[in-house]
C-alpha cells in the first residue's frame, strides 16, 4: 500500500505514560502472561494424573525459589487481569466513564491487586509453612 505523503498519527513514544494508558496496556500484557501461565496449570494437572512420582517432581520444581517466583508472577498477572477485567465490565455497563472515576478505579485496581496477591501468598505460607 502506498501511503504517499499523508500525515501519520503520532507514534506512541511521544506521549508521556499516564495511569490510564499504562493500566490499559498492562491489562493486555497480563492477559497474555496469564495465558502462558495456564501451561503450568495444565502441566500440574497432567502430573497429578500421571502418578505420585511425577507429581512430587513437579511439586518440588514449583516449590523451588524459581518455581515460587514464577508462580508469584503468575498470581500477580492473573489477579491484576481479573481486577481490571471487573473494571472493564463496569465500563461495559456504561458506568464510571468520566475521568475522575477512571483514575479512582485505576488506583483501586492497583491497590486491590497487590493486596489480594500478597494476601494469597501470606495465606499459602501460613497454611503450608515455608
Amino acid at each position: 500500500m502506498t501511503r504517499g505523503n499523508r500525515p501519520l498519527s503520532p507514534h506512541l513514544q511521544v506521549y508521556r505514560p499516564q495511569l490510564t494508558s499504562s493500566l490499559s496496556i498492562l491489562f493486555r500484557i497480563m492477559g497474555v502472561a496469564t495465558s502462558v501461565g495456564s501451561l503450568v496449570l495444565i502441566w500440574w494437572l497432567v502430573a497429578a494424573a500421571s502418578g505420585a512420582e511425577y507429581f512430587e517432581m513437579v511439586q518440588s520444581f514449583l516449590g523451588s525459589w524459581f518455581g515460587r517466583l514464577m508462580l508469584f508472577g503468575w498470581t500477580l498477572a492473573l489477579v491484576y487481569h481479573l481486577c481490571n477485567g471487573v473494571r472493564h465490565l463496569y465500563w461495559d455497563a456504561g458506568k464510571g466513564m468520566d475521568l475522575p472515576s477512571v483514575h479512582a478505579s485505576g488506583k483501586a485496581v492497583v491497590v486491590v491487586s497487590l493486596l489480594l496477591t500478597l494476601g494469597l501468598w501470606v495465606l499459602a505460607y501460613s497454611v503450608g509453612g515455608a
Partner: peptide, 15 residues
C-alpha cells in the same frame, strides 16, 4: 486461587 493457596504444602494423596 483461594483453594490452591489453602492446599499449599499438600502431598499427592491430599491433592
Amino acid at each position: 486461587v483461594f483453594s490452591v493457596a489453602m492446599m499449599a504444602g499438600a502431598d499427592y494423596v491430599e491433592f
